[in-house]
Nucleic acid binder design. Structure first.
Lengths: 348, 348
DNA sequence: CTGAAAGCGCTTACAG
DNA sequence: CTGAAAGCGCTTACAG
């Protein structure tokens, strides 16, 4: 075991002051002379003092931690492009501010509700991220009841809690516009899980874009956000009497499965069917033809969400009447990346 | 805000006992009569009491949390099959025992060392997982210095800390045996990052298996554990004068990239080159031909690692001389899953 | 500007 | 078996 932890008393003794002064000095609180502050800093440095989180938390009534509950089936999580990047972005921000991330991985919604509640009951976290939102998401009521600061990720407009969004509509509209310009009139959709808001958002954006061209949105095939789902959707597509000549898939993984399956069956991509995905995963660049996609910024989203949540946490405990934290933040819109799966004439 | 938190004093008052008794009763400590215990339990339930983690931690000198620092480049993490499953397995175990997971996502080794140190300094965690080990991994010295309980994942034999392993050798040997039986004599390897122990382990197992057949291990191509790396390796393979007729890839992703690239170039899989990966990701089942692979059990590994680490944490603070915690645990060996990318005659 | 004291919510010897 | 008290390491009014 390492040597006994150095406490605030050790620093106070060494600097020849009281622990109150040490606390004030190290926390940048006003009311400490510059000289004293410097002396205390020096002593703290010499001793390698690091304030115990437990002590701070218990007296300051804060955990200095944020919670994130992932709800995903294990086999889906395995290939999920969102969470890794998101977690990285969160870390970047909260780490610098002395916070840590408490992560839970759950399977179903019920379980994750229990976990959010426990995180709050145990005062393990000061706030939580709400991703993979559903319409009428029960977590909203829960965090409200618990008085737990929370920010939503890619929520619908009108979402009752602060949230961070990346616009999906403009890129999807641009995609449909391009497909129409290329001569497509029957454009289908390979959908994700209809319970998830972001799945519905993508679908609805596609429908709107189609209607804007006076086109009937083509058939919707189940894609389940997975490669296997894309393969299944391809089978469904092939069975269609009036096959759409283009499909917009709710994510890249299902698009990849779709593309692979139709190619195996002898169809040409994009000749027989143009395909676009959503997410912008690296893999999409290397398949043949490269997968057109809507590139999103989970890392950016995470950075903004973390910043917002931290402000919320600080604010809700702040001493002054805070001028007000921006309730909602937008990161730049997702953008369309045109690649070979849509058109052989690829734009730069 | 929710109502004031109910504390141990409330429970004590309601049950008409002292807080010591409440603490003892609720922690299943001996020295409380059954009747009193029951009365206290009742009171606690009625009040919805949940012991504050902060209070427990500060007095009990334990964080009731475990730390995990992932070090992966963001674009790699995006498609990493290991962490999602691993985290899920960890949760399963620690959650049931009242522990939470503090996660850090770092890019380089230097950074992750800093974070391990901070987790320990702040007493945020009681122990840590060490994954993605390197030979002579500096984290070993660090946790030793810090006196921080730790368990290694898939460490080499002789690793100085307790660890959990899944045997990789038998499955790789079986793979090479099968390839040899199928008539292959030139079998190459698409390697991962040579700094990582598990990358070296897979390579060395392949080399050994080759030598056991008196065959010279074929060329080693860089695969970087990524799809793109597999594509590059395929290019390198094609440029070879004496192309191996089979390749064992360090992971599935690079195998997928390799397979796709050689197919694009007109080669037949497995006719011109048999391909096998490692990991057992779902995606491998759906590509064409399905990818032969060595199926691993990250979730199992995680469960055992978490159990071991918790025992270590409990043990190191236990009152009695613990009889001794098993220092090393093996989960069942990884197994070969033969699929079409190796042979058209697939075993069940 | 500085310090003595109370308190955050528990656990753990120590008495009784 | 049960309780009073100290202590974990801080922060925060409150005096001075």
């Amino acid at each position: 075991m390492a040597a006994r932890k150095v406490t605030i008393f050790d620093v106070a003794a060494k600097a020849g002051v009281s622990i109150s002064s040490v606390s004030a000095a190290l926390n940048e609180n006003p009311g400490v002379s510059a000289a004293t502050r410097e002396r205390i800093r020096q002593a703290a440095d010499d001793l390698g003092f690091r304030a115990s989180l437990l002590g701070r938390s218990l007296s300051g009534r804060r955990a200095y931690a944020l919670g994130f509950v992932i709800q995903r089936a294990p086999d889906v999580l395995e290939m999920d492009p969102f969470f890794g990047a998101f977690l990285g972005g969160v870390e970047e921000v909260i780490d610098a501010r002395g916070y840590a991330l408490v992560l839970h991985v759950g399977t179903d919604l019920e379980e994750s509700l229990t976990r959010y509640r426990r995180l709050a009951d145990e005062s393990r976290v000061d706030g939580v991220f709400l991703a993979d939102l559903r319409r009428e998401d029960p977590r909203v009521a829960l965090v409200t009841e618990l008085g737990l600061p929370a920010v939503g990720i890619n929520a619908d407009p009108g979402f009752p809690l602060p949230s961070v969004r990346q616009d999906h509509e403009s890129a999807i509209r641009e995609l449909v516009d391009l497909l129409v310009k290329l001569g497509h009139t029957r454009i289908g959709h390979v959908a994700g899980w209809p319970v998830l808001v972001h799945s519905l958002q993508r679908r609805e954006a596609w429908e709107q874009a189609m209607r804007a061209h006076d086109l009937e949105p083509g058939p919707v095939l189940e894609g389940g956000f997975s490669y296997a789902g894309g393969v299944d959707a391809a089978a469904a597509w092939m069975a269609l009497k009036d096959r759409p000549t283009a499909v917009f898939c709710a994510n890249d993984l299902s698009a990849l499965g779709f593309a692979s399956a139709v190619q195996q069956a002898g169809f040409d991509v994009p000749g027989d069917v143009a395909i676009a995905g959503y997410d912008g995963i690296e893999l999409g660049r290397y398949v043949n033809p490269p997968l057109a996609t809507v590139v999103t910024s989970p890392r950016q989203l995470a950075r903004q969400a973390a910043t917002l949540l931290l402000d919320l946490v600080d604010g809700s405990l702040g001493r002054d009447g805070d001028p007000g934290i921006p309730r909602d933040v937008d990161v730049g819109p997702a953008h369309l990346e045109v690649r070979g799966s849509i058109s052989t004439i690829t734009r730069s």
